[in-house]
């Protein structure tokens, strides 16, 4: 039987404004790269935050397993220690704290990378450009020596050249080291560089499609939008 790193079973979750995730089912193997596509407000970022244990979101029912352990009630730091990491779409600024100071605190060993060296002595995310934020996030993630990294909208706000650069770092530092990746993206632009094994489509808090060929999904979405996905006869769970 194929090994499972992350397993989400019938996960329902709510935030301040009500239910956001409505029965999510997802499996990710060790070292596997998957993508999660979805329209705005479909629950993509919420899913990422819930997987990492953000206390802002309440789990109504369902389970999250990581490395075979039920981590549904684990604190964010406990999940991080187990090897889960999130690259935030809009990370908060931490004034007065240099990136190097945080890396020193969280690093399991010294990071050898040339990207982002100029950011080390700057306050975390203060006046960072979109690209700088992504590099800073990836540096922190590498420092954690994770088993799974979730990228929340890693390609948003970047031009195609920057997306390619970020994808190269992800491939070199994570994918080539057999670290599992879940790429959350609205546009899907980064997928051609990362070539996910599976692409999931999330609409209104449910994963309605899981497909090996990411190009096929991108083509449908580009032509008809996510509306077509909703009508697709191969909805997840109905195949």
């Amino acid at each position: 039987m194929k090994k499972v790193l992350l397993k989400i079973e019938s996960l329902w979750s709510k935030g301040d404004s009500g239910e956001i995730l409505r029965g999510i089912n997802l499996k990710l193997g060790p070292g596997e790269t998957q993508a999660l596509l979805g329209p705005n407000a479909s629950g993509k970022s919420t899913l990422a935050q819930v997987i990492l244990g953000n206390p802002k979101y309440k789990i109504i029912r369902g389970k999250i397993y990581f490395l075979g352990k039920d981590i549904t009630r684990f604190s964010p730091e406990r999940r991080a220690k187990l090897g889960m990491a999130l690259v935030w779409q809009m990370p908060p600024t931490i004034k007065g704290v240099k990136l190097s100071a945080l890396l020193e605190k969280i690093s399991k060993e010294k990071i050898e990378t040339t990207e982002g060296e100029e950011l080390l002595e700057r306050e975390i995310n203060v006046d960072f450009s979109g690209g700088e934020r992504k590099i800073s996030e990836i540096l922190q993630t590498i420092a954690l020596k994770p088993r799974l990294v979730i990228f929340d909208e890693v390609d948003s706000g970047l031009d195609i050249k920057k997306i390619e650069t970020v994808a190269k770092i992800i491939k070199r530092e994570l994918i080539s080291r057999k670290i599992a990746i879940l790429i959350i993206t609205h546009s899907g632009q980064i997928l051609k560089f990362l070539k996910p094994a599976f692409t999931n489509v999330l609409v209104k808090g449910r994963i309605i499609c899981k497909e090996k060929n990411y190009k096929k999904i991108l083509k449908v979405i580009a032509k008809y939008g996510y509306e077509k996905c909703k009508k697709c006869p191969f909805l997840a769970g109905r195949q």
């Binding site: 990492l52 244990g53 953000n54 206390p55 802002k56 604190s75 964010p76 730091e77 999940r79 991080a80 220690k81 990491a85 999130l86 935030w88 990370p91 908060p92 600024t93 931490i94 004034k95 007065g96 704290v97 100071a101 945080l102 605190k105 969280i106 306050e123 922190q140 954690l144």
Partner: peptide
């Protein structure tokens, strides 16, 4: 202390107390 900052640092593996101490130390340097 912003809950978002706290959660962010906890997702980096810091305990709540460590995260508060880091945010406070940063605030005092601004």
């Amino acid at each position: 202390i912003s809950e978002e900052e706290l959660t962010y640092l906890r997702m980096r593996g810091l305990t709540e107390k460590e995260a508060i101490n880091l945010i406070v130390a940063g605030f005092l340097k601004t």
